[in-house]
Design a protein around this nucleic acid. Structure first.
Lengths: 241, 241
DNA sequence: GCTTTCACTTGATCAAAATCAAATGGTGAC
DNA sequence: GTCACCATTTGATTTTGATCAAGTGAAAGC
């Protein structure tokens, strides 16, 4: 089902939206120029330091957001502090759980990021009047569901080595959607975050990195910069044949 | 956001739909009587034996379904046969992944079940014309996403005992939505399926059942019938404080 | 009635990852 | 330059759950 690109004059579009990448890839692409103007009146952008919280588990949702730049992690915590990252969102993803007052997860910036926020009630009103917008949000939810289920297989059935390789493969294919060369990238997560994403400890993550490095599956510089000489080989290590 | 119940005369509704529970709880509730009649022309019901496959991983999706009765498990398999259940669907859930040709998962009956099937292209056409229907499907996708993320925490961070307790709690609260007394129920899954749902082996699942039984958290008869004397206690064993 | 089969349980041993502990290496403050 | 701090790595040991193997019990077939 192809979506017809709306023929809108750039001059009708709010200034800040014109150069926005999320406008075409993200949910704003479903809006007419008037709707965009309306939404823009209530929206504001902000920069997030690494670790800055967008919304906390159990808190009342005030805003939805579009990620303009950076990586946002979605986490769940248990009462005793055990933590699991249940999703990673990359620009230009929509951030938020429509139709619920209270957030079941914490969202926080994994890297220095920039987001564009809209009040929940404004977007909710817009969704009711704009089937195309609901369709976009529906597609986003389905994409996240597919990703969550893929990751459930990783969490439930893969070995530590396969998990770490799966993580590297995920980052390689998601960090920079435009880039042709996916063989070199910066890890957006610390070892502790990676452990929380994979259901492992930081020690095990570190050991598996060392092992993959010694087997020449990856090269690592400065802890964060990774090079993958053979992506298919990494994929095999990840158990995705 | 409350959805106005459509004021439809029963006489306009297809005979088979009149007594259908999924009509109000499920996606059909979003349809007018004409739309329901239209959809009904192309739909058919069938009974599924335990283990019967609704759709296989990698196959082309021909039908969507509503679960009328029973429990359907959604699984993913790796090339070497390792398997993970990534979702359990209970009546009257909608079954299917809108907008994708190829299924990323296998869906099969965990118990003897009954489903109502509609051809994909018929429902897809209806979705485009019926925002209310897309809204229902969107809500269903979001519900499944919430459940998937809850389960990711279970898979990634809980101990074997907490996992088994979490499974029992999940079944207790989902198997019979109408029932007030949730303290006695039949397990819809074999030990092997439970292991695949929890990312464990059958031996570990069995041992944890024995342990929970010895600690009087549950009682078990005939392997499948479970009684929970204290649901809050089970919840604590599941790590959900 | 007896055997076969299948699901489940129980026991013994093993291995993978967690835990506990210490070392390394880089960065920023002074 | 030195110190303090933090993230990461590496090493030793322990624990949890997997694996291998044998048993039990109930239902189905002959």
């Amino acid at each position: 089902m192809e979506i017809r690109r709306q023929d809108i004059h750039n001059s009708d579009i709010p200034l800040v939206c014109r150069a926005c990448e999320a406008r075409h890839g993200g949910v704003c692409g479903a809006l007419t120029s008037e709707q965009l103007s309306e939404l823009n009146k209530h929206s504001f952008r902000n920069r997030l330091e690494t670790g800055a919280e967008v919304i906390g588990q159990g808190e009342t949702v005030v805003n939805y957001s579009n990620i303009m730049r950076g990586v946002v992690k979605l986490t769940k915590v248990m009462a005793d502090g055990r933590q699991q990252i249940v999703g990673l969102q990359f620009a230009p993803d929509f951030l938020g759980r429509p139709f619920l007052e209270e957030s079941a997860i914490t969202a926080e910036a994994a890297t220095e990021s920039e987001v564009c926020n809209f009040p929940r009630h404004v977007l909710d009103r817009l969704v009711k009047r704009t089937p195309e917008l609901e369709h976009k949000l529906h597609q986003q939810a389905l994409k996240e569901l597919d990703e969550a289920r893929d990751w459930m297989l990783t969490l439930g059935r893969k070995t530590a080595q396969e998990k770490v390789a799966s993580f590297l493969y995920l980052i390689a294919t998601h960090i920079d959607p435009e880039s042709v060369d996916r063989s070199a990238f910066e890890l957006p997560l610390s070892r502790a975050d990676i452990a929380d994403f994979l259901g492992l400890t930081i020690e095990t993550v570190s050991r598996q990195f060392t092992k993959l490095r010694k087997e020449n599956v990856i090269r690592i510089e400065n802890n964060r910069h990774v090079t993958v000489p053979d992506m298919d080989r990494l994929m095999r290590y990840a158990g995705n044949d």
